[in-house]
Design a protein around this nucleic acid. Structure first.
Length: 322
DNA sequence: CAGTCGTGGCA
DNA sequence: TTGCCAAGACT
């Protein structure tokens, strides 16, 4: 090949294809975007940051009510930072991965201490905050500050994998090739809308299971459809749950969130039954124990919660951090 | 880098 | 019914 010819990585689409994707997806987004409160023009950077923490591995529909209550109670980082982390854990409710609540609380304190109470606007500053990784930093910088960052989440990766690369699913972990592709696809203008649009397409149409290709704005030039929708290259690893420490920790946290006074260790370890006087339901720890959770696993799980700062000892009992 | 970390709805 | 999976971060 003559070296004066412009060469392009195989996985990067031609300019005409990129233009097509931009036009089709942004147009589709204008007509189909969900009206989410953190997308409202008046939403503060803090509100967007809170939504990003809550949306890490948790579906939108479950985040919505918790986000509303959270923002009403803590409309600024300073408001959250002024309260014990245990209050954040309680307000987090059953969103899952409660360490996110702890990190959000710590991030709020860092924002007060290092940024005068204002959410920082650059990727570099955001990355210094606890709980903020590559995705979240780019997302906040893009959605809250309209900086031209390349946002890459699981939805965007899947859309790119199918529409451009022709694969059913993206690789198990984010690769540099994917980052290069995402950067190459970024438009010069309207980067915030583009990031949100591709993410939305992945969430509503180009879904992991049973994608709605009939409703897809780029189906006419989708590499995966053109290839006959081949099966995934690999088998996604399942997320084990039954019998894991995570299940035990989750049950313990549920008890601690509901408790108004410190909970006896014996209760958390499942050796004595605790009955909720409000509902009459027995807490699940004795049940987990009868289902095979060993004394060792229960003890290890409780120690883990304490070590992670999700709980603390209080006298002869345990409670959320106060 | 592969493992760990919650929770609930849906196919 | 059971397994998959959802706007990841951290070690």
């Amino acid at each position: 090949m003559p070296n004066h010819m412009i060469t392009r990585a195989k996985s990067v689409p031609a300019p005409s294809q990129t233009r097509y994707l931009h036009e089709q997806i942004t147009s589709w987004f204008a007509d189909n975007a969900r009206e989410l409160p953190w997308r409202a023009p008046r939403c503060s950077p803090w509100g967007i940051m809170v939504s990003e923490f809550m949306l890490q591995q948790t579906p939108v529909v479950r985040v919505l009510p918790v986000w509303e209550q959270w923002m009403q109670r803590w409309p600024t980082p300073a408001a959250l930072a002024a309260e014990p982390s245990g209050e954040a854990l309680r307000a987090w409710g059953r969103l899952g991965y409660p360490r996110r609540a702890l990190r959000l609380h710590s991030a709020a304190a860092a924002i007060v201490g290092r940024h005068g109470g204002q959410v920082p606007g650059t990727r570099e500053e955001l990355l210094q905050l606890p709980g903020v990784g590559t995705y979240t930093a780019a997302a906040i910088a893009s959605f809250a500050f309209e900086r031209p960052e390349t946002v890459v989440d699981t939805n965007i990766r899947r859309v790119h994998a199918r529409a451009v690369t022709g694969h059913a699913l993206p690789a198990p972990s984010l690769t540099s090739a994917e980052m290069k592709l995402a950067a190459a696809l970024m438009p010069r203008q309207e980067t915030k809308a583009w990031n949100a649009a591709v993410m939305e397409l992945g969430a509503l149409v180009c879904t992991a299971r049973s994608p709605k290709c009939g409703a897809c704005p780029v189906r006419e030039r989708c590499a995966w459809v053109a290839a006959g929708q081949p099966e995934p290259h690999y088998v996604p690893k399942g997320q084990a749950w039954a019998g894991t420490d995570r299940q035990v920790r989750g049950a313990m946290m549920a008890v601690l969130r509901e408790a108004e006074t410190p909970v006896l260790r014996e209760v958390l370890l499942g050796t004595v039954d605790l009955v909720d006087h409000g509902t009459g339901h027995a807490v699940p720890l004795t049940k987990l124990r009868s289902l095979g959770a060993s004394d060792e696993q229960l003890a290890r799980s409780l120690d883990g919660l304490l070590a992670d700062g999700l709980a603390e000892t209080a006298g002869s009992g345990v409670r959320l951090p106060n």
